[in-house]
Design a protein around this nucleic acid. Structure first.
Lengths: 209, 209
DNA sequence: CAAATATACTTAACACTGTTAAGTTGCCAA
DNA sequence: TTGGCAACTTAACAGTGTTAAGTATATTTG
């Protein structure tokens, strides 16, 4: 089956091209400037060809959102070498913020836009693998911290959600311009870092006498 | 000037009609289903008439976003009767979550969509009054709590941002369906409440011995 | 090898979107 | 009565996602 094999590879290659073009477009020009026609222009095919490789636009956005999670993991390389769960948690937060601010369009897709979740609802019947894996790592760290008596005890799920929500809140408010008119531009990142530091210090049991 | 006066009132009335129609549309059918033409249909005018009363679509969305802040304040009636700043803070958080989940489309406009902020940037040169006022109330409460030795000390601005970010994170992840596949539907609200409770307990100095 | 079929891609169109320029009413003041 | 102005509409532009139908080219089959 040498021929069908090569065909498969060609098909995968064009899928790649479409994703690459979409990525380029929405990193360069922002989310709302990505259109099927612009993608088609970039890969020099007709717009309808794209529908031979993806069911619809949401399908492309879903794939990109998964690439986003891959990219995010790169930020966390070496994270598990940190043995102290509290320190690891702190670093996770820092990486999360750094990733969000450096890749606002990916972040948007992963945690703000509705499109990818609609695909999850339709296709992958009842699972959001990428999100589940990422949240799992947070939960593990929180649990470890509690077990070792390093951080304030509480329901692991609720506490993990609270921490995730806080960093997500910081990043999403920042990239949706809600800090712009409340905090001087150059003070935004320091303020975010300070907020994270405060949280980590507040839950740190070792700081209490 | 009786005539020009009545004219003014008529003009204001049509503005109202447009805003009411937009509100109805985006509360009933969701944000992305609001179009100039649908608004026009609802008020039985031609689409272009709307441009005689609002500069563009963003202008309408900005006005709606301000109405959202008004509506939010209604949730906080009687809040300042609570003398204990920690209790008040807790209630503020509960109200914030309740408002967000009950009025997702308004919340979207106020804290997620970019459109209203773009209007702020263009017109109101360099202020986001609604946001500033709301954040101000939070800051006052946090400061009062710190002054009275009821909550963990820290930079008032950063701590306020941290708290706002956490509740915003909870609400925005919820209304953008990020909890749906991670937590059973009926467990979402309890989990959010639990997360808020945990935060308040964690910063409560009176609980420490 | 020729005919039938399957593959890859395009053209044209539909039903939308926000927005603008130009045209049409009807009312008010001179 | 007429000029001008205000309120409103029609028609159009340039864009969007998406689908049905058509056209080559390549592959398989008789």
């Amino acid at each position: 089956m040498g021929i069908t094999d090569r065909k498969e590879k060609q098909k995968a290659e064009i899928r790649r091209m479409i994703l690459d073009a979409s990525m380029k477009l929405f990193v360069d020009q922002g989310f709302e400037n990505v259109s099927i026609r612009k993608i088609a222009d970039l890969i020099e095919y007709s717009p309808t060809t794209i529908y031979l490789y993806f069911k619809d636009k949401d399908d492309i956005l879903f794939s990109l959102h998964e690439l986003g999670f891959q990219k995010m993991q790169e930020y966390n390389e070496g994270l598990w070498d940190i043995k102290n769960p509290l320190l690891r948690l702190h670093k996770m937060g820092e990486n999360y913020i750094r990733f969000g601010l450096s890749n606002p369009e990916f972040y948007d897709l992963m945690f703000i836009q509705r499109a990818p979740m609609q695909k999850v609802e339709q296709i992958d019947n009842c699972e959001w693998k990428s999100g589940d894996v990422a949240l799992g790592r947070l939960k593990d760290t929180v649990r470890e911290g509690m077990d070792k008596g390093l951080i304030v005890k509480g329901d692991v799920d609720a506490v993990s959600m609270a921490i995730w929500s806080m960093v997500h809140g910081l990043v999403s408010l920042a990239i949706r311009d809600r800090f712009d008119k409340l905090v001087p531009q150059e003070a935004i990142l320091p303020m975010m870092t300070q907020a994270l530091n405060w949280l980590v210090e507040t839950i740190d049991l070792t700081l209490r006498k």
